[in-house]
Amino acid sequence: MEKALKRYAPIFVLPTFLAFVIGFILPFLQGLYLSFCKFTTVENAQWVGISNYIAAIKDTSFTDSFTFTLMFTVVSILAINVIAFALALLLTQKLAGTNIFRTIFFMPNLIGGIVLGYIWQILINCILSITAQPLLALNKPAGYWGLIILMCWQQIGYMMIIYIAGLQNVPEDLIEAAFIDGAGKWDALWRIKIPMVMSSITICVFLTLTNSFKLFDQNLALTGGDPNHTTEMLALNIFQTFYARSGMQWKGYGQAKAVIFCALVILISMLQLRATRSREVQQ
């Protein structure tokens, strides 16, 4: 069969492959090259060596946005996964109305980041003005917690679905056997359920990690980096470097930042996958 199939390779593989070259491989390689250049368009690039990288690392707005992104990512991973897992546990207990709850908690996930950002901007600004505090545009802590709440609102439902699927795969008799052997509810949770859904935990932590780290739309719509770029995350910082400034040097800096960003995302997600994968148990 393989032989017959090979003759059809152009029909099967070529359309996707060509689009993949145009949409990913070419821009990726070009981006890598341009990070060592000074340019305003792809045509007028001049080689400048690693000076873009040095400028990017020295740029305090970049390092500040890195710290901000890191603080945001850690808190949002914890909050989202703990709450989503708790909800999944509750919703696998055969309570009344489980399906309705599942439907409602998942719903915000379908709304796009820009729209979500504005919904919460309106809501948070109302709360802030009623309690006589500065609005989002001038209030960094509110911007930070607003982003976290927004991220939780959007992602908890999605992760909950994954955890529910994981929990439903834990064999009933395993838990019954544990109860017969004298285990309590907490033992069953910590010693059986959590180890058995470790693969779901790997996926959910991976997804929340990459989603939080790469967050852009929500950041743009909710705070736009205000006040004074202090709530700017890495992706938004890179975008601003590219498009909000004029001058030959900025696009090169932006591209260098993007390469660093890309390397960070790959590195952190690999580390995370390795750390949680090693705890998974085979059924």
Partner: peptide, 16 residues
Amino acid sequence: SMVVPFQMVMFTLSQT
């Protein structure tokens, strides 16, 4: 390609 953030390719992609 699934892991690479969009910012990495956004400029070159729009030019392409």
